[in-house]
Simulated assay, not measured.
Amino acid sequence: MARFTILVRFRVFDGQMAIFLPLMIENAEASRRDEPGCERFDVLRPDDQPDCILLYEIYRDRAAFDEHCASAHFQRFDSATKALVAEKQVTVLDLLAEA
């Protein structure tokens, strides 16, 4: 079965990054540590967009991603950050090659 890969873009409200980023990193670390189906979870920030966070995530399959979304740590993160996020965009990607 094909791996499930996503790119998530968050735009955080002005002045909220100091609260948002530690929660995001905690969620990413818990995903890698506690979810066998989570193969990669990178947290990135574009140099020229201090209010933007990008996530690059690879899961074993769609079911592993669904388990991630249902996990207690993700639910805590999602609830704690809802009021901090101005915009969230999720893009599903086809992983064509790994180097």
Rank of each mutant, 00 (worst) to 15 (best):
D47F: 10
I6K: 08
L55M: 15
I6Y: 02
R32T: 04
D48P: 02
L55D: 02
R62S: 05
N27F: 01
D14F: 13
D14H: 08
M17V: 14
C52K: 14
L21E: 14
R11H: 15
L44D: 07
R9T: 14
G15T: 11
F20L: 13
S31D: 05
A28Y: 04
R9P: 07
S31T: 07
Y59A: 01
Y59E: 00
M17H: 12
D42H: 13
L55G: 05
G15L: 12
V8Y: 00
Y56K: 06
A30S: 11
R11E: 15
V12G: 05
C38R: 00
R32D: 02
A30R: 15
F10Q: 09
D51S: 15
V12Y: 08
D42C: 09
P22W: 06
E57I: 01
Y59N: 01
G37E: 04
D42G: 08
P46M: 04
E39N: 06
P22F: 04
A28M: 06
P46Q: 09
M24N: 13
A30V: 07
C38I: 01
F41C: 14
I25C: 06
L23K: 15
V12A: 13
I25G: 04
L21S: 11
I6E: 01
S31L: 08
R45N: 13
L44C: 14
D61P: 03
V12M: 10
R60P: 02
M17A: 13
D34F: 10
S31N: 07
I19P: 03
R45F: 06
M17R: 05
E57S: 01
R11Y: 12
L21P: 05
R40Y: 08
C38E: 00
P46L: 01
E57P: 00
V8Q: 03
A64F: 06
A28C: 09
D51M: 10
E57Y: 02
A18L: 14
Q16K: 14
R40A: 05
D14N: 14
Q16I: 10
I19S: 10
I58P: 05
Q16V: 09
M17N: 13
A64E: 03
C38K: 00
A63N: 11
A30G: 05
I19T: 11
V43C: 04
L23T: 04
E39T: 03
D14W: 10
G15N: 11
P50A: 06
N27L: 03
G15R: 08
C38L: 04
N27R: 07
D47I: 12
R32F: 08
Y59I: 00
D48W: 02
F10N: 12
E39R: 08
I19R: 09
R40F: 07
P46Y: 01
L54H: 11
G37W: 06
L23C: 11
V12W: 04
A18Y: 08
E26W: 04
C38Q: 01
R32A: 06
F13G: 10
C52W: 07
E39H: 08
